[in-house]
Design a protein around this nucleic acid. Structure first.
Length: 991
RNA sequence: GCCCAGGUGGCGGAAUUGGUAGACGCGAUAGACUCAAAAUCUAUUGAUGGCAACAUCAUGAGAGUUCGAUUCUCUCCCUGGGCACCA
């Protein structure tokens, strides 16, 4: 038999495919287009590791399937080659990054090609190629001309080790993303891109794209849209007298409903108003010191998780709460960020955890203005929508025993689930303490009660009052009483019929209380509203005319009431777009002494990177380009006067923000891509990439795309129709693969030993595509065995081809493991094998679309085993395996194992490549079975299985079931209560 | 702290509009072939009890809903990832 020689066969077909050019995407074909995309790799010096190809193989399977389905597929690749590792290597060795990049990408190309991935190599791009970055610079200039690229002096995140400014996104836990050095703040002029101008659209347009839900969520969280209000607090008149035209303090809040509880204001240390009221502040020296100390703090110190909040009061000024008209103190504290909202907040300690913590520390007043609402635990008191509401006030009494540490509890007699404390409504004109005493007396008979204090805050209970035929909204307050002694009067018969009185120890109380009342009583019991902030919604209290209004509803009304305005803010910051580094696109701007910043004229693009001797950034933190006088000193394009080039370069996110557009027309030297080509190819139909790029690259490229759309340069508002992500491949043992751990697996080795097809099948089979999986060299053999099985079968078939003339009927049957499959013995192998084939085609077709490659392979393994045994069984007599069916199997296998499928296809007499054939269809008739096996349960436990005809109705199935011996034994002497029948699945007899 | 994903045999993992838990693969054990080994093929392989038929237990822990829960609800624990004073 012909040996399976993966090396020979794989090289042969890779050459052949390249020769006939079947993976070339044709511009403008009659076929419908399909654009599949993977994130182009960074060609590092370490070469490929086994994690790289996982997404390429996944999208390759989809691309190959699409071609078989008749699409004109664009599946391109290129190199995202600007970036720090190459630059750091250049600094260390003095080697030119241009040269290093070429070497690395040549190596990557050769490695990727050996995997048989159907990339269209003719459209390869490289972000470091001047022909490419000319257009990156050109797009930057469009941003500049529209005012969306601007220079700003700002405190940036500075990495003292890399000597570059970092974007917020590159700071991880206060450290530099690349080298781990703690990041410090530094004032620097930086280029910025105004991504915040697009925040609203970047958020909203997510509605229209097909991204995995987690990806949308991550983007939305990152953009951080929050709707609230801007409200102005004026300084109190005492300050106005001294300072003319003093502006008001503007705060941003998402909880305008809580304004009656705003007991102080906080300004961020950077707030400009602070110095404007300087003359009134009596403790100015201390304030200044606080602000100064704060400036020196590093990012880590300021954001440390266990950091205790600090602040200082601006003594001598007060602000006026526009809702209560109260004078409230003004503080400065660094827990308020200058960069978000207005840089000032109204503090509502009762309903915000941070304000609460601060108020506790500095002993500021805490006032409840929102009270939680719960439902009555009594079943007959479910609120009725058709009934009006009546407001009432009520008390809940926590009553301590005169002698022991026990508390009075009430157990309702009619409702076992209703367990509460003494409570009742306040009658008209009654003092609430009197109400408490009266209710204790009525419900428990105890008379000698002493009121100690009110505890906790308010809370509401909603219920339907059966006697009064109305809904009641009762506002409870919590009263703490101590009994002086056990003096008791008799309890009235009506009260006695309703409930039992019990004494419970303090630690038993919580478990005793009914679920629905538990939290509200418990909050009162512990005085909880004073111990933690209640951040939920509810009904307003202590809020003047807004009392009892729903807090959500109150938001708008209160904004109006205090003269604020609705406002939406975003967490997203503008994008720090400059790097003081060599290995990036030079920012194409010229600084003229007279004209200011002048864009490099388009005819002068690209601004090429000059050769330098030393790649090290300068000590002052400028890019090494600043040292090259010849390059820096230029004529101003406008006035021809003396001018200097900008020496900052772009971050490596720049080139990857638009590369997918270039693939549509990668050779164009007049435009970044022609409108015609873009119209044909974009948007990308399916983009698969890593989870680590969902907030940065994905957001940045959506931003660039929208900008280009606004200029009329791209035809769609969104670049990618669909986005999925893949999991990482981890080293053996589930740790990250890394050079330092020495557990990196090079795919070259695997390709050499087992072949590309085996590597591909294994990588797709090892686990769910979207999840991380640990590499296991031991397990690869399974994929190899599968391919060899397919191979052996193909060879045998081709050797016996003359015997294959068409459908025959065989005698034996395929039995399942347990041997239960008795009746199937009557049907033919031929038919049953055909059915398995069609089911497999269906399964594989559907699984590929869901990226469930592992289960698709599993079903093909089953099919291959069945085909092999069917073939072996009847080789001498009448074959059960139809040649056409085997070929269909090859067609569905082809996207996974392209080389072996092509070889066998060819060997079985096909002249044209398998990739010019078409994806097999499954026949619905062959998916249906006439006979099926259903499970018989007794009381939900599986007892046996029976075979039924598909068209059997419930009656027949029941009859068959009750004839079954095993079942008769199970139900003997028992009464059949109920029979549950689920069509085609099971029958359950309840006895 | 918050958000997201997940927790199933010795291992990777199947199965979720609630319906046979462990498909498929790896590993392991036994057998066939072989002088022998490798490869291949066949059988077994969640645990416990039993000669067996079979029974009981089992999807991170505990409760609940249901004729029936890996799947739904609640509480808690653990792992991975993201965010982190965003008012």
């Amino acid at each position: 038999m012909k040996e399976y020689d993966h090396k020979k066969l794989e090289t042969k077909w890779q050459r052949e495919w390249e020769k006939i050019g079947i993976y070339h995407a044709e511009d403008f074909s009659k076929k419908p287009k399909y654009y599949s995309l993977i994130e182009f790799p960074y060609p590092s010096g370490d070469g490929l590791h086994v994690g790289h190809p996982r997404p390429y193989i996944g999208m390759d399977i989809i691309s190959r399937k699409r071609r078989l389905e008749g699409y004109n597929v664009l599946y391109p690749i290129g190199w995202d080659a600007f970036g720090l590792p190459t630059e750091n290597y250049a600094i260390k060795t003095g080697k030119d990054p241009h040269f290093v990049t070429k070497k690395n990408s040549d190596n990557f190309r050769q490695q990727i090609k050996s995997l048989g991935i159907s990339f269209d190599w003719s459209r390869e791009v490289n972000t470091t190629d001047p022909k490419y970055y000319k257009w990156t610079q050109w797009i930057f200039l469009q941003f500049f001309k529209k005012g969306l690229a601007y220079k700003a002096k700002m405190a940036i995140n500075w990495c003292p080790s890399c000597k570059i400014g970092l974007a917020n996104e590159e700071v991880v836990g206060g450290n530099c993303e690349r080298c781990g050095t703690p990041v410090v703040k530094r004032e620097k002029e930086q280029w910025m891109l105004a991504i915040t101008k697009y925040a609203e659209r970047l958020d909203k347009d997510l509605d229209d794209v097909d991204y995995l839900p987690q990806i949308k969520l991550a983007q939305r969280n990152w953009i951080g849209k929050s709707e609230g209000a801007e409200i102005e607090f004026s300084f109190c008149p005492c300050a106005k007298e001294n300072i003319p035209n003093l502006e008001k303090i503007k705060v941003f809040t998402t909880r305008p409903d809580t304004i009656f509880g705003a007991t102080y204001l906080v300004l961020s240390p950077e707030h400009t108003l602070i110095s404007k009221v300087k003359s009134r502040i009596s403790n100015w020296a201390e304030v200044l010191q606080y602000i100064g100390a704060n400036k020196k703090k590093t990012e880590i110190e300021r954001t440390a998780p266990d950091k205790i909040k600090t602040g200082i009061e601006l003594k001598g000024v007060k602000a006026v709460n526009p809702a209560t008209k109260e004078e409230i103190p003004v503080w400065v504290a660094d827990y308020v960020l200058a960069s978000y909202g207005t840089g000032a907040i109204m503090a509502v300690p009762a309903h915000d955890e941070r304000d609460f913590e601060f108020a506790k520390k500095y002993d500021l007043p805490i006032r409840q203005v929102v009270a939680p609402v719960s439902k009555s635990p009594i079943p007959g008191q479910i609120v009725r929508n058709d009934m009006p509401y009546v407001d009432r006030d009520a008390v809940m009494c926590i009553v301590k025993h005169w002698d022991k540490d026990e508390y009075l509890c009430i157990q309702w007699k009619n409702h076992i689930d209703v367990r509460s404390m003494v409570s009742g409504g306040i009658e008209k004109g009654e003092d609430f303490i009197e109400t408490g005493k009266r209710e204790i007396r009525e419900e428990s008979g105890y008379t000698n009660t002493k009121f100690i204090r009110q505890v906790g805050g308010f809370s509401f209970v909603n219920f339907y009052h059966q006697m009064k035929k109305t809904n009641v909204l009762a506002r409870f307050r919590y009263l703490y009483f101590e009994l002086q002694n056990g003096e008791q009067i008799p309890i009235s018969p009506e009260e006695n019929a309703k409930h039992n009185v019990l004494w419970k120890k303090k630690n038993e109380v919580y478990d005793f209380l009914s679920l629905s009342e538990r939290d509200s009583i418990w909050n009162g019991f512990l005085g909880k509203i004073k111990e933690i902030a209640y951040v939920g919604s509810g009904l307003l209290v202590n809020s003047g005319k807004f009392d009892r209004m729903d807090s959500e509803k109150a938001k708008k009304e209160i904004i109006k009431f205090v003269g604020g305005k609705e406002k939406t803010t975003f967490k997203l910051r503008d994008w720090v777009f400059s790097r003081q580094r060599y290995w990036g696109e030079p920012i194409p701007v010229i600084h003229c002494e007279d004209c200011g910043m002048v864009p490099v004229p388009e005819k002068d693009l690209p601004v090429k990177l000059p050769k330098v001797k030393n790649y090290q950034p300068t000590e002052s933190g400028e890019s090494p380009l600043a040292n090259i006088a010849k390059w820096v000193n230029v004529q101003c394009p406008k006035c021809k006067g003396k001018a200097k080039r900008e020496t900052d370069t772009m971050p490596n996110w720049a080139g990857s923000s638009w590369y997918y557009l270039r693939y549509a027309d990668s050779k164009n030297n007049k435009e970044f891509a022609s409108k015609k080509n873009l119209k044909y190819w974009t948007p990308v139909d399916w983009y698969n990439g890593g989870n680590e790029h969902t907030t940065l690259h994905l957001l940045y490229s959506r931003f660039w795309h929208k900008f280009l759309f606004d200029l009329g340069l791209v035809p769609t508002t969104e670049p990618y129709k669909k986005r999925t992500s893949h999991g990482m491949i981890l080293g053996e043992g589930g740790v990250k693969m890394s050079k330092s751990l020495g557990n990196v697996i090079n795919p070259d080795e695997i390709v050499k030993t087992y072949g590309a097809d085996t590597l591909r099948v294994y990588e797709m089979f090892m686990g769910p595509f979207s999840q991380s999986v640990a590499w296991s060299t031991e397990s690869i053999i399974g994929a190899r065995r599968f391919i060899e099985k397919v191979w052996r079968l193909g060879i045998k078939i081709s050797e016996n081809q003359k015997n294959f003339s068409g459908p025959r009927v065989a005698r034996a049957s395929v039995q399942n493991k347990s041997g239960l499959n008795q009746t199937i013995q009557n049907s033919s192998d031929f038919l049953s094998l055909k059915k398995i084939l069609h089911k497999t085609i269906k399964k594989v077709s559907e699984d590929i679309e869901e990226m469930h490659f592992n289960t698709a392979i599993s079903s093909m393994m089953i099919l291959a085993t069945k085909m092999e045994s069917a073939f072996a069984l009847d080789l001498q007599k009448s074959p059960t395996l139809d040649l056409k069916d085997y070929k269909k199997f090859l067609q569905i296998l082809a996207p996974f194992a392209p080389h072996v499928a092509e070889e066998l296809w060819n060997m079985l007499g096909e002249k044209n490549t398998i990739y010019l054939s078409s994806w097999p269809e499954w026949s619905p008739d062959l998916i249906e079975d006439e006979e099926i096996k259903i499970v018989v349960q007794v009381n939900g436990k599986v007892r046996t299985e029976i075979i039924i005809q598909t068209d059997d109705n419930e009656e027949i199935v029941k009859k068959k079931t009750l004839e079954n011996e095993a079942i008769l034994k199970q139900i003997a002497g028992k009464h059949v209560k109920k029979v549950v029948y689920v069509k085609d699945k099971l029958i359950n007899i309840v006895v």
